[in-house]
Simulated assay, not measured.
Amino acid sequence: MTALHMIKDRLSKISFKQIGIAILVLKLLLVIYFVYIISTGEGNVFSFDSTFFTFVAIGFFAQLIDGALGMAYGASSNALLLHFGVSPRIASASIHTAEVFTTGVSGLSHLRFKNIDKALLIRLVIPGVIGAVAGAYLLSDILDGGMVKPYISAYLLILGSMILYKGIRNKHKEKKEVKRAGLLAFIGGLLDAIGGGGWGPIVTSNIINQGKSPRETIGTVNTAEFFITFFATGIFLYYVGIDSWQVVLGLIIGGVFAAPIGAFLASRINKKVLFIVVGMVVILTSLLTIYKTIGEYSHFIVSLIS
């Protein structure tokens, strides 16, 4: 037996309990790190005012959508944070940090409701982490993540339309095997880190489009997202740090409360309804990103002319 086969055999024997323990241990390590930097005076002091509870509400709403549909946490929370005056840089760093906690609770909840395909989870995690780490490094030190967003959104707009069409027709055939899951996870992790979001829309949409059960797809992709976000956040913390604990803690608290509700909804919603809602969410978030990009280019062109 080759070394690769031995690794695959050991990975296939990992239990749901061991996956849950791994999530808890990694979250504990991050909590210890946060306690350390706050105790040494590196974290910003804030008050529990009305603004803080606004961030809690944003975190709850965004995670409820993400837990039930397997996507759109970054898109919905980022749009709301920018609306309430948070700068793009702080919004992006805060969302990635908060996602470690929200996706951890969401993953544990999906494990509880048995919304997981373990074999698919293992196929997604390793290449997804590699892609996310590479993307986080590129964004932190080399690239501008905003440049790739319009192209991703145009692709997702087509994919979302296909999913919506399948949901309306209700003639999709469920398949057990997902093709090119590793490559899909690598691309999803890479573009998620570079573009500030996209793991759910890219990976969930493609897997559902291949015919996989929406319930298992959402649960598996959400659980895999914890590991992708954890390692990407480590890179971001090293290069960028955290500028606003008020935003981060608000998103975490709201998201933690919403995560079990979202996982419960994913285990109960009708498959046809899930296809239609997932398709509509992908289409709307893609159109929003394209619209914002067009607006930014228009302002840029006008400023050059004037």
Rank of each mutant, 00 (worst) to 15 (best):
F113E: 12
G189E: 00
I37C: 05
F186L: 11
L143Q: 11
R268M: 07
L304D: 01
F186Q: 00
G167L: 03
L237T: 05
I168G: 05
G59R: 09
F101S: 10
Y165F: 11
H5P: 00
G234E: 11
V56A: 12
A259Y: 07
S153K: 06
I235V: 15
F275Y: 14
I130P: 01
T2S: 14
I301L: 13
G74K: 02
R89L: 11
L183A: 04
V278D: 03
I130D: 01
N206K: 01
A68V: 00
G241T: 06
G70F: 02
F275G: 00
P201N: 02
Y73V: 02
L288Y: 11
V86C: 07
P201K: 00
I242S: 09
A22K: 06
S153G: 11
S109K: 10
L30P: 04
S286I: 13
S12K: 10
L274Q: 09
G198D: 04
I194F: 08
V248M: 10
Y291D: 12
V203L: 00
K292R: 14
Q18K: 15
T97D: 03
F231R: 08
Y155F: 15
G250R: 12
F60I: 04
Y137H: 14
P214G: 08
V278K: 00
V31Y: 09
F300R: 05
N222G: 09
L108Y: 04
V148T: 12
V282F: 02
A119M: 05
I19W: 09
A181H: 06
F34K: 10
S106P: 09
L82T: 14
T293W: 14
V248E: 09
V203W: 00
Q246N: 09
G200C: 04
V221G: 00
I290V: 12
S267T: 09
K173A: 02
A75M: 09
V25L: 09
K17D: 14
I269V: 13
S303E: 08
I14V: 15
A98V: 06
V240C: 00
P214W: 05
I235R: 10
G145R: 03
V248L: 09
Y239T: 11
A232F: 09
F61I: 15
V247P: 13
G160R: 03
P260K: 10
Q63A: 05
A258S: 09
I294H: 03
L28E: 02
W245A: 13
V125F: 03
L24R: 08
R215H: 04
M6Y: 07
F52N: 13
L81P: 01
I283W: 10
V277K: 06
Y238M: 11
S50D: 15
D192W: 03
L29K: 04
